[in-house]
């Protein structure tokens, strides 16, 4: 086989594989949007009704509990994780700690990133058993915060490290403390920081494995921090292979909402990157 034949052979193979990937993607988006959208359009009240007493047996009711549960879990956990991650990521910069040590801590967070989310769930469940608690909203928030922390730390760390040294040095030469320098550096790194936070949020909102043990997974509206709760991905997991078609339909509706949220987060991430770029010295490097 000469080199030109080989070239065209691999070109065909490449196009085939791109088509495979595009097809699987369109299929997933199509199923969620068409099938889920159809369920929601047919009965829009689904989104605002609480589940009835025989909900899982094909009884009436909507999926408000999962929507509220997702919101109550994800927003506080993202706020907690962002706050902690900022402190850690800022600490990992050269002005606080030596390169050798910060590299070691980075390896730790890389490992934590790779840990399957179910292990975080098991860990929190263990702590719960130890203190005699049950699965509740608070435990789910803590688990999701743990899950997001390594992701957000990694992105923030990358964004903060990419800030030109000139900015740091000119702040210090004016006599600013490290804390005051942080404000300027953080503003410069804002596009990267928001991207990381939104990415962590996206991971948390779609994760079922970590909350399956810790949230309690009830079909009641979440009423308190120590009460059990449910979330959209949990609802999909529990109801996807249900015997009752009407219960299965709710899983499709939930997947539609999840996909919509993920798309929205993606758009937000792009928009914020564009908007916050004006802080970075007019887009020019120092």
């Amino acid at each position: 086989m000469n080199k030109y034949a080989k070239e065209s052979l691999f070109k065909v193979l490449m196009i085939v594989s791109v088509l495979i990937i595009a097809a699987s993607l369109l299929l997933i988006l199509g199923i969620c949007i068409v099938k889920g959208g159809y369920v929601i359009l047919k009965d829009p009240k689904l989104i605002v009704t609480a589940p009835g007493p025989k909900y899982l047996l094909g009884g009436e009711g909507g999926l408000l509990h999962a929507i509220l549960g997702s919101i109550y879990m994800v927003i506080p956990s993202t706020i907690i994780a962002t706050f902690l991650a900022y402190l850690i990521a800022r600490f990992l910069q050269v002005d606080y700690i030596r390169q050798k040590w910060s590299d070691r801590i980075r390896v730790l967070f890389d490992v934590l990133w790779g840990v399957p989310s179910i292990i975080f769930g098991i860990f929190v469940l263990n702590v719960l058993i130890r203190i005699g608690g049950r699965g509740c909203l608070l435990a789910a928030i803590i688990t999701l915060a743990l899950l997001q922390l390594p992701i957000i730390v990694r992105y923030m760390d990358e964004a903060l490290s990419a800030v030109p040294n000139g900015i740091r040095e000119s702040m210090y030469s004016l006599g600013a403390t490290r804390l005051e320098t942080s404000h300027v550096i953080a503003k410069y790194a804002l596009p990267g920081i928001t991207a990381g936070v939104l990415l962590g949020m996206g991971r948390a909102i779609g994760d079922a494995a970590s909350v399956v043990f810790t949230a309690g997974a009830s079909n009641a509206l979440p009423t308190g921090l120590l009460k059990s709760a449910s979330s959209l991905p949990l609802l999909i997991f529990m109801q996807a292979s249900s015997y009752y078609p009407s219960v299965r339909d709710h899983a499709y509706a939930a997947s539609f909402m999840l996909i919509a949220i993920i798309l929205l987060l993606n758009i937000c991430s792009r928009a914020s990157a564009k908007r916050f770029r004006r802080f970075t010295n007019g887009g020019k490097n120092l």
Partner: peptide, 14 residues
């Protein structure tokens, strides 16, 4: 990017 952010339960459902 969207595919990477898609939750695993959605893959399971599809």
């Amino acid at each position: 990017d969207v595919l990477a952010g898609t939750p695993s339960v959605v893959y399971g459902l599809c």
